[in-house]
Simulated assay, not measured.
Amino acid sequence: MNPLLELLTRSWADILMATWQHVYLSLGSVALGALVAVPLGIWLSSRQNIARVVLSIAGTIQTIPSLAFFGFTLPVLGIGVLPAMVVLFLYSLLPILRNTYTGIREVPGELIEAGRGMGMNDRQLLFMVKLPMALPVIMAGIRISSVYIISWATIAALIGAGGLGDLIWGGMNVYDIWLILAGTIPAALLALLASFILGRLEKAVTPRGLRST
Rank of each mutant, 00 (worst) to 15 (best):
A161M: 13
W152S: 10
G163C: 09
L135M: 14
G163A: 08
T154W: 00
G160C: 14
L158P: 13
K130T: 00
A161N: 09
R123D: 15
G162Q: 06
S145G: 03
V137W: 10
G170Q: 14
A140G: 14
F127W: 15
W152E: 06
I149D: 11
W152I: 12
I149S: 05
L135S: 15
Y148R: 00
I168P: 03
G160L: 10
F127H: 09
I142N: 07
L126E: 04
D166G: 04
A153L: 07
L135C: 02
A140K: 10
I149Q: 08
S151P: 09
P132S: 06
A161G: 13
S151E: 10
W152P: 02
G170S: 03
I142Q: 12
I168Q: 14
L126T: 05
G165H: 08
A156F: 07
A134K: 04
T154P: 03
S146C: 08
I168K: 09
A140Y: 08
R143S: 09
G119I: 12
L135D: 06
L126H: 01
A161W: 11
M139L: 13
M118D: 15
P136V: 00
Y148E: 03
L158R: 14
L125G: 04
K130F: 01
G165K: 08
L131D: 02
A156L: 04
S151R: 15
M139I: 13
S146Y: 11
A153D: 07
D122L: 05
P132E: 09
W169Y: 15
R143D: 05
R123P: 13
D166W: 08
L164K: 12
V137R: 11
N121R: 00
M172N: 03
S151L: 12
S151I: 14
G171I: 10
A153Y: 02
